[in-house]
Design a protein around this nucleic acid. Sequence first.
DNA 1: CGGTAAGCTGACGGCATGACAGGACAAGTA
DNA 2: TACTTGTCCTGTCATGCCGTCAGCTTACCG
Lengths: 215, 215
Amino acid sequence: MTGQVRTVDGRVAGRRGQATRQKLLDCLGEMLSSSPYRDVKVIDVARKAGTSPATFYQYFPDVEGAVLEIAEEMAKEGAGLTELVAGRSWVGKAGWQAAEELVDGFLDFWRRNDAILRVVDLGAAEGDKRFYKIRMKILNAVTNSLTDSVKELQAKRKVDQDVNPAAVAGSLVAMLAAVASHQKGFQSWGVKQAELKPNLALLVHLGITGKKPTR
Amino acid sequence: MTGQVRTVDGRVAGRRGQATRQKLLDCLGEMLSSSPYRDVKVIDVARKAGTSPATFYQYFPDVEGAVLEIAEEMAKEGAGLTELVAGRSWVGKAGWQAAEELVDGFLDFWRRNDAILRVVDLGAAEGDKRFYKIRMKILNAVTNSLTDSVKELQAKRKVDQDVNPAAVAGSLVAMLAAVASHQKGFQSWGVKQAELKPNLALLVHLGITGKKPTR
DNA sequence: CGGTAAGCTGACGGCATGACAGGACAAGTA
DNA sequence: TACTTGTCCTGTCATGCCGTCAGCTTACCG
C-alpha cells in the first residue's frame, strides 16, 4: 500500500539511500526555520547534509517537492489533534476543560511545526492544491469534530438554529492557527503567553456554546 | 518631511523616473497575484514593464524592497480600518451592527489586497521586522480600538474583570485576518460567502461583549 | 548651444539549477 | 578470491537569473 521509497529516476531506495534522503529532509527542515523560505537553496541544503546538489535531485524534483514530503509527515501527526475534540462534553466545567485543552494542544502543535506550517499556509493561500490539501488534512480533523459538537448542541436546543456550525468551527480553528503562528506579535502589545491561553479558551467556549464558561 | 523619491544611487527621480518606478511597482503587484512569491523574478517584472532588469535595480535594492514599498502604500490605506471600530457602541442593536460592519470592512480590505497581504504575512511570520511593522500598522489600528472597547465595557462592569482586553481583541483580529486570507477554504467545506459573514460577526460580538447579540 | 543631471541599457562575472554519465561501494555468487 | 549486479554518489556542463558598471541617450536650464 505505502509503496517503497523511490528515487526520481525510478530506482527503489535501499537502506543507505533512505538515510541520505532523510538527512536531506531533516536539513531542509532546519533551514526552513532559520532562513526565509524564499532563500532556501538546494545547494545549501545539500552542503548542510554533507552531500551534493545532484544527490538532492535524485530524491526530490525540487525544493517544493521535498517540503511537501515534510508537510505530509507532519499532517499524519496532526491527525491526532482530533482527539482534542472528539467525544468531549461542552457542558459545565467539562466544557471549560475541553476548551482549555483544545487551545493548549493546538498551540503546542503549531509551535512545534512552526516553520513548515508557515510554508504550507503560504502555498495554500497562493492556491497550490497540494499544499491546500495538506492544510485541510490537519485543520479538517479539528474543524469537523468541532462542527459536530456544535450540531449536537443545536439538536439539544442549546445553540441558536441560525448558527452555521461549519462556519463557526472553521473560524475558530482559523483563529487558533493564526494566533499560534503570530504568538510573538501578541507579546509586543503586552500580552504574555500565559495570559493568551485562557482568553483564547474563553473565545472558543463562547463560540461553541454561545455562553460564558463555568470554571 | 516626506523627502523626494530617490534612486538607489542617490539621484532624485524626476517625472519620467517616477513613472517608470510606479510602472515597475504595478507590474510587480500583478505578478504577485498571478504567481507564487517564490517564483517572482526581477527579470520578469522588468520585461512586463517593458524595461530592463538594470532599471529595476536603480529604484529598488531587490524584490523584497519593492514589495515593502507596495505594502507601505497599502498600510496607509489600511489605517482607515480604524473607523470601523472607533467610537462605536457595543450595546443592543448598535452592537450587532458594529460587529457586522467590522467584519464586512475587514473582509473587503483583505480581498482587495489579497496577494500583497499574503507576502507581508509570511515575512512577518518569518521574523522580518520590516514586514512585521507593516502588519502591525494595519492590525494595530483595529486591535487597539477593539481593546479600548473591551476596556470600556469592563469599566461599566459589563464584561468580566479577568478578561484580558488586548488578548481578546488581538485574537479576534487574527481570526478575521486568517478567515479573510483563506476564504476559498470555507467554500470547500460547504460554507458560502454570505453565510460566513454573520457567523463571524456573531463570534466578534460574543468575544467583545460576552453576550449574544440582539438583532 | 553647451553643460549637467536624469534615465536607461548592454554586457559581464558569479552563482544556482537541473541533467547526465560514470565512478565508488556493498552484497551476493561461483 | 574474483566477478557481477544493482544501489548510491559526484564531477561536470549548459542554461538562465542575479546584481553591477560603464557608457550612451534624453531632458532641462542658463
